[in-house]
Amino acid sequence: MFTGIIEEIGRIKTSDKRLEILAPEIAGDTKLGDSVAVNGVCLTVAAKEKDKLFFDVMELTLQDTMLGSLQDGAAVNLERALRSDGRFGGHFVSGHVDEAGLVQKVNANILQIKISNKTLIAVKGSVTVNGVSLTVQSVEENLFTVSLVPHTLQTTTLGSLRTGDSVNIEYDLLLRYLQNLIMTEQPKADLKRFLY
């Protein structure tokens, strides 16, 4: 489980089915088997070497996320899994990316992103873009807009996004479960009890 609060911007050293990332700030106390969100994708540390972390990436993950398009030297957002005694600053983020969205517009601190499923986006709700917890400003058709505060622009890779870039999208976990509950064939009485 993650929060969408980025700890470090890492650098891709080699990109393939084994991802090598330069991460001097978090590598020190990261252990083999730990979970790290890389641009919002939960990956397991397979090896470690001083200030580098290595991850084995499945073919399906490369196809379903934007990780497959990363080139050597690319910057990525990194967050270690939430500790039980840590401060919870963003929202519940599983690291299971729902889809790769497409940046439609970048205007100073505003990002507009095209997605395939607007039913899981709510105005003033949470969404994760490349691992960063953000608040949805508006939704229209299959587009949603988020605003980026100066701190987010400085401490994540979102400030370098351009029109046409692919981004990892994870919808709000709670909204996803609620939609799943509503779409199951539960008796209406049970649903009313849950909602009211």
Rank of each mutant, 00 (worst) to 15 (best):
D72N: 15
V57T: 10
E59C: 00
D29K: 10
C42V: 07
E7A: 04
G131I: 06
D165T: 10
A23T: 07
T65F: 03
E185N: 15
G73S: 10
L111C: 08
N39L: 11
D98T: 03
T119K: 12
T163E: 15
N180M: 12
N142P: 08
N107I: 05
T61N: 11
S35V: 11
V123G: 00
L148D: 01
A46T: 13
A47D: 15
D34V: 09
L191S: 00
L181G: 10
H91P: 04
I6A: 12
G10E: 06
L181N: 10
V36K: 05
T30Q: 00
R162A: 13
L111Q: 05
V132F: 05
T152I: 05
K118L: 03
R18D: 10
L120N: 08
G33Y: 08
H91G: 01
T44W: 05
Y196A: 14
L175P: 01
N39G: 08
T14N: 14
E99I: 00
L111V: 07
L158I: 09
D29V: 00
G10A: 11
V106T: 10
K124H: 06
N107Y: 04
T184G: 08
K114N: 05
R176S: 07
D16F: 09
V129G: 03
A81V: 13
G90V: 14
R87E: 06
E141S: 14
K114G: 06
M66Y: 09
K105I: 12
S69P: 02
I121Q: 01
D172H: 00
V136W: 03
G28Y: 02
G90S: 12
G4E: 04
N117R: 14
G73W: 12
R80F: 04
R83T: 06
D172V: 01
S84W: 02
C42M: 04
G90L: 13
L70N: 13
M183F: 07
E170I: 08
N180Q: 15
Y196Q: 14
G33K: 13
R11Q: 10
G89Y: 08
K48E: 02
I9T: 12
I26P: 10
L111H: 07
K105L: 14
L43G: 11
G10Y: 05
F92V: 12
M66I: 08
L174A: 01
C42E: 02
D34F: 12
Q154L: 15
T128N: 12
L82Q: 05
L53C: 04
L111Y: 05
F92Q: 01
V149M: 14
A189V: 14
